[in-house]
Design a protein around this nucleic acid. Structure first.
Lengths: 246, 246
DNA sequence: CGGAGAGTTTTGTCCTGACATATGGTCACT
DNA sequence: AGTGACCATATGTCAGGACAAAACTCTCCG
């Protein structure tokens, strides 16, 4: 039995129609109205039900297929894959992640410098001549349990950073508020063992396992805005993601 | 100066037109014909140059934007972001990755069992009653240097696995040859320190850092085919990826 | 009774056309 | 000289139609 959709479409909303459909189907999957494995009506029929054109319907389903919620097979139909799809790794900060999870992250700024960049950093960020960097290290804790030790370099010609601001807000939020639109980031995840200093700050034994992450973020103008090296307590943090075959 | 495209389009090819464009632009970026930061002609003009419709051109550019090679800004235009974009984390096996990189991976099968599943595995794989699993551990090495220790569970009602087959081929290749089409995988990356046994097998000191990965893969019929726990030597392996803001 | 072929269904690709909207620059007015 | 309104430009969204290709089903023939 093929499932039909019951999604309110508001044509006067600024939200694109195809995105309303995406949200609608996502909602139906999460609340169980569409069970994993169930088959959807065909695209033409669904489009007709919602009074949309097929390309619009298809664009919505494209997104859902890409995010891994639906599976299409030519000549057969479209199926719900799983209700338990973790969101793809996002281009967001640890601070935002924690805050969304209802936690109250606190930040201690361990060091804060502003000046010319070392050669390696200037190279990584592809800094133009004369542009300096903010260089700072932070310790992030949740419920007074230390979680991450973060070292970052941010070019100084885009936004003004202050030690106080970093204590109160996530770095990404500050940069976004300053008009930076992040577009992509290159990221590398690995592992290391805690040295003396890391162990003390993160309140773990020396030699404990740490998750390491290096990231360089690029904004919509193609500028490399930020690069950083983070280490996380392995007993409290890991990276989850859903990979989708294309 | 806006760049124009010079891409051969073969309308009789079975490769979709939009994909030919994707490959063409990708090629021009990689070989330097399109420099990072350079601006492309507008969509309508590019479509006209290649004798394509705008939707087709747009679909091609959509893919490139999603993969992080291009950046679009409404009212402004489309720019090349970077030549150095790592491929997105793929749904493939370590074996394939290494083989593509020109390496010769070798596999030692440490244990191989076939029988009913433990409750936890049956739950993770959502096994129907009566379906058993293959359970095996493998040690993968490159140039006789051990790299990864892998423990996997595969449901036994889809393909027949043998110890000899696993020695010769990657697990994913065997399953694909058996007609399994993987669609998505949930994956978690973390860190740990090597215990006595891991240290010995991977030829590192006890207490060395290891990258851990747990993965469960789902095929196009929605079946959870495989789950596994892998550990990698942190000094030779890390996960690289490009995140794209949507 | 079994297998090959035809037909149906459904997604995949591609086209033309239209209007909306954000951005950046220009020009006139203050 | 500064500022606001206007306009050109380019991407964003949406419609409707057409044909291709894959996968399943059913029928017919051996």
């Amino acid at each position: 039995m093929a499932a039909t959709l019951n999604i309110p479409i508001d044509r006067s909303s600024p939200v694109p129609l195809y995105h309303q459909v995406v949200q609608g189907i996502e909602g139906m999957i999460r609340n169980g109205a569409l069970e994993p494995g169930s088959k959807l009506e065909n695209e033409i029929e669904l489009a007709a039900q919602l009074n949309l054109s097929r390309p619009t319907m298809r664009k919505a389903m494209d997104e859902l297929v890409r995010s891994g919620l639906l599976v299409r097979k030519r000549g057969v139909g479209t199926q719900v894959v799983a209700s338990q799809v973790r969101r793809h790794l996002e281009l967001s900060s640890l601070f935002d992640d924690l805050a969304r999870g209802g936690k109250k992250p606190t930040t201690r700024v361990l060091s804060f410098r502003h000046g010319p960049a070392e050669a390696e950093v200037a190279d990584t960020l592809q800094l133009p001549a004369g542009v300096g960097v903010y260089h700072f290290t932070r310790l992030r804790a949740v419920d007074s349990k230390p979680l991450a030790l973060m070292e970052n370099w941010v070019r100084d010609d885009i936004a003004e950073l202050t030690e106080g601001g970093l204590r109160e807000h996530g770095m990404y939020q500050i940069l976004r508020d300053a008009g930076v639109n992040f577009r992509l980031a290159n990221q590398r995840i690995g592992a290391a063992v805690a040295d003396e200093r890391q162990a003390e700050l993160l309140e773990v034994a020396r030699g404990s396992a740490l998750v390491t992450m290096e990231r360089t973020a690029v904004d919509d103008a193609g500028r490399r805005v930020e690069t950083g090296r983070h280490v996380y307590r392995a007993d409290s943090y890991s990276f989850e993601m859903t990979l989708v075959q294309r």
